[in-house]
Simulated scan of single mutants.
Amino acid sequence: MHKTIVKVGIVGLGRLGRQHAENLAFRIPFCELAAVCSIDSEAVEQVKKEWNVPYAYTDYDEMLANKELDAIFIATPSGFHCEQIEKALHAGFHVFSEKPLGLYLEEAIRVQKAVNRNKEKVFMLGFMRRYDHSYAYAKKKIEEGKIGEPVLIRCYGLDPAKAMDGFMKFAKKNYSGGLFLDMAVHDLDLARWFLNAEARQVWAIGGNYAYTEFEELNDAETGAALVKFENNKMGIFVASRNCAHGYHIETEIIGTKGSLRIGTVPEKNRVTVFDESGAVNECSDGFLERFEQAYLSEAEEFISCILENRQPEVTVEDGVLSTCLGYACKEAFETGELKTVQYPVTAPAFGSLMRGESTIYDAD
């Protein structure tokens, strides 16, 4: 691509969408936020006016008809991702989509096919933790052999309890996909990345202890999954929407010669407050604060890939495989049974998974 400026249209102006929009508009070189789209007409008009965005839409299809745009950035609720990705690719755009790729295996596989039919276009999925400096450093240390062969990963993903009211409004619209697909999918992707292995079997449990409203959604307020990966590697995943002290994201990777921990204390910064409560290290309030740098870095990578005519390291296959694992966790929780992870056989990238104990089905 010989253009020096990438013109981007974003769909979705919620909490995360607004952050992405600000990054695209003000913080990324060679990028112009040229269009915004949301069903919230007031938010659309506000952004258009205050940021001088040329185009504003409340209809996604109308934005896709704008041929001045080069790329579409999708930051809508999870249930809309697959259809919007397919439409944007069909209309000839480069596409960035927030996680997860899809809420169901069938639609995730359909998107994978659409991406592979449009290989000349850049497609990137928003697994932003891979672009966080701490997680990237841990990956580098693993590749250098610092902890030997990684054999176990333990992940905590705990959302602040004070965000519960806002989340319930979101979940009751059936936008979430459940605890494991909506929240734990980041950790499931990290596990695949750090262990360099795919999941085979899953057992998951959970419950609703302070917020019984989740019973109506067939979901869990707090849940845990135990995953067996290839070569008997192990994963322990804990996710909760009820964390009293704030936003707590913690990861531990145990290897044959050592271990790594990321985010053991979810500190807001390096300041310690001394007062009547004692010595206090304040915690991050939420994902936008904790991963501010990562969200910016992943968007910068997307724009760079377009300008340099290359594909990002995070692929559509990463999205499909993480969806497979997340969906297996969801099924294991709902049934109380041990589940074998099902994988498609349509893509060459999945060839190494098609041996051993995995149940396989042909997505065609």
Rank of each mutant, 00 (worst) to 15 (best):
Thr340Trp: 09
Leu288Asn: 11
Cys82Ala: 15
Ser38Arg: 03
Ala108Asn: 09
Gly177Thr: 00
Ile147Asp: 06
Glu149Asp: 13
Leu179Pro: 02
Tyr55Gln: 15
Trp203Lys: 03
Val316Glu: 06
Gln112Ser: 14
Arg117His: 14
Glu337Val: 04
Ser176Asp: 03
Phe127Glu: 07
Tyr209Pro: 02
Gln84His: 13
Ala161Thr: 11
Val345Tyr: 07
Phe229Cys: 01
Leu190Asp: 02
Met354Arg: 15
Gly351His: 11
Leu13Cys: 00
Gln311Pro: 03
Gly145Leu: 08
Asp159Phe: 05
Ser97Thr: 14
Gly223Met: 09
Phe30Pro: 02
Val320His: 01
Leu353Ala: 09
Gln342Arg: 15
Pro266Thr: 05
Glu107Asp: 13
Glu62Ala: 09
Arg27Ile: 07
Asp70Ile: 04
Glu62Phe: 04
Pro29Ala: 08
Met63Val: 07
Ser259Leu: 10
Ala43Val: 08
Asp285Pro: 03
Arg310His: 04
Ser322Thr: 07
Tyr131Met: 09
Cys82Thr: 13
Phe229Tyr: 11
Phe214Ile: 11
Arg154Trp: 14
Leu89His: 01
Tyr137Ser: 07
Gly258Leu: 11
Lys139Cys: 07
Asp182Lys: 06
Leu33Asp: 08
Pro54Ile: 07
Tyr361Thr: 15
Phe123Glu: 08
Phe80Val: 09
Asp364Ser: 12
Gly356Tyr: 15
Val227Cys: 00
Asp40Glu: 10
Asp362Leu: 11
Tyr104His: 11
Ser322Asp: 01
His94Met: 01
Arg18Phe: 05
Glu334Trp: 14
Ser297Gln: 13
Val115Trp: 03
Asn52Leu: 11
Ala244Ile: 08
Gln19Arg: 14
Arg192Asn: 02
Asn218Gln: 15
Ile28Leu: 05
Gly157Asp: 11
Ala65Val: 05
Pro77Cys: 13
Gln293Glu: 13
Ala220Met: 12
Tyr135Asn: 09
Leu195His: 07
Glu83Lys: 10
Ile306Met: 05
Pro29Asp: 04
Tyr156Thr: 03
Lys3Gln: 13
Arg18Met: 11
Gln46Trp: 04
Lys162Ser: 04
Glu106Trp: 06
Cys243Asp: 14
Ala161Met: 05
Ala108Phe: 07
Pro54Trp: 13
Gln19Asn: 06
Ser176Gly: 00
Lys87Pro: 00
Gly157Leu: 10
Pro160Phe: 07
Gly17Thr: 09
Thr315Trp: 02
Val122Asp: 08
Ala75Gly: 09
Ala299Met: 15
Arg310Phe: 13
Tyr209Leu: 12
Cys37Val: 05
Glu86Ala: 06
His248Phe: 15
Ala210His: 08
Pro54Val: 10
Phe291Asn: 02
Phe302Thr: 02
Ala204Gly: 11
Ser304Leu: 12
Cys243His: 13
Asp219Cys: 12
Ser240Glu: 04
Leu296Trp: 10
Glu298Phe: 05
Glu107Thr: 14
Phe180Lys: 01
Tyr60Arg: 02
Asn281Arg: 14
Tyr247Asn: 02
Arg261Ala: 14
Pro312Trp: 06
Ser134Cys: 09
Glu106Asn: 08
Leu16Met: 15
Gly102Lys: 03
Val345Ile: 15
Gly263Val: 04
Val11Ser: 06
Glu282Thr: 02
Tyr327Phe: 06
Lys3Arg: 15
Asp182Glu: 13
Asp165Pro: 04
Lys139Gly: 05
Cys243Leu: 07
Glu230Thr: 13
Met124Ile: 15
Glu331Pro: 00
Gly148Met: 05
Leu158Asn: 00
